[in-house]
Design a protein around this nucleic acid. Sequence first.
DNA 1: AGCTTGTGCTTGAAAGGTAAACTATGACGC
DNA 2: GCGTCATAGTTTACCTTTCAAGCACAAGCT
Lengths: 185, 185
Amino acid sequence: MPVTEDTRSGGTSAADDANGTPEAPWLSAEEQGAWRTFLYGVNLLMENISAALEQDPRFDLSLDEYEILVRLSEAPGGRIRMSSLADQVVHSRSRLTHTVARLEKRGILERVRCTGDGRGREAVLTDEGMALLREAAPVHVASVRSHLVDAVGTQGLLELGQIMGRTIPEDAPVTRGTVTSDVKD
Amino acid sequence: MPVTEDTRSGGTSAADDANGTPEAPWLSAEEQGAWRTFLYGVNLLMENISAALEQDPRFDLSLDEYEILVRLSEAPGGRIRMSSLADQVVHSRSRLTHTVARLEKRGILERVRCTGDGRGREAVLTDEGMALLREAAPVHVASVRSHLVDAVGTQGLLELGQIMGRTIPEDAPVTRGTVTSDVKD
DNA sequence: AGCTTGTGCTTGAAAGGTAAACTATGACGC
DNA sequence: GCGTCATAGTTTACCTTTCAAGCACAAGCT
């Protein structure tokens, strides 16, 4: 006896009837199925893509750590302020502090004071970090290809980016720039 | 100086030139942007949707725990074998053991021996668990609506499901059934 | 029966993540 | 310049996940 199932036939899931309660606007069976598939697919995809990077003994980088390196490598001067970096990779500040501390211990990046604002810190990619990233990048890209692009095609990937882009608020950090150029909707 | 950027103009990212090395078939700028947006969007979305459930003091359920309850509630007899459940929610066996142990301690489910195979265990949803799920479901659905469906529309959601479905292998557990019924591609 | 191998799940320690308190700096009012 | 408040990061304690054994039952062999 499913809990999250809508009984209304195919419908557009309108706001609920006019009694007082803020009644649950359930998802239609179709929506529900799509959401489940999406969630399962994303979980599996992330699992696979993380694994590709982690299992390679040359790196010892999680996908999250890799993302940090990528962001840094693309930033001017290879440096980004901690809080901004945290937002970009969607981590709590605390989590970023821990992760960056580990990476710093490995010599992959450094932390320096912000000039002009003594409170802030910037993470700066070291040459070793850059070298590691250069080694890891092809492996990562290959796994994105094999697990995602090969399955859904370039068009599918562009659509995924296009649609997910619509969930991202206007004032979100970075990313939105390169979203879509000439995808015909 | 970006590491993961393709220099070839707009291109279709063909397999590489004929020298020996398994050269990295980079992503085009478009693909790259889409992947980034997708990744960022998914991270943010999961963050938001988890938070909605976790912040409600009535439940104290992570999204992963919630997913476990949903799967159980939909299974015949409210029971699923541990390994199958692990696959369905994309957790390691160890992780599922720990999580289920915690849920069991809270009286939300029970673990019983499989009849016929003494090695296996089944997780069984208790009445309390079912009650909790019934309470939590509307909250979860509401957050999926507000963070995803309201942003991308029903059509967008169906497309997400459709496309992500293509990344899921044939022999994957469950989910694939309800993927799409009459989405025109 | 008695081994050996395989499978299903659990355990326990270490690594990683979360949440709340804490430190250090800057900003503002007076 | 001094008190208050806000902001940026870090620290600490606790909880969760991972990783590498480990235990229990099943299955096959001889």
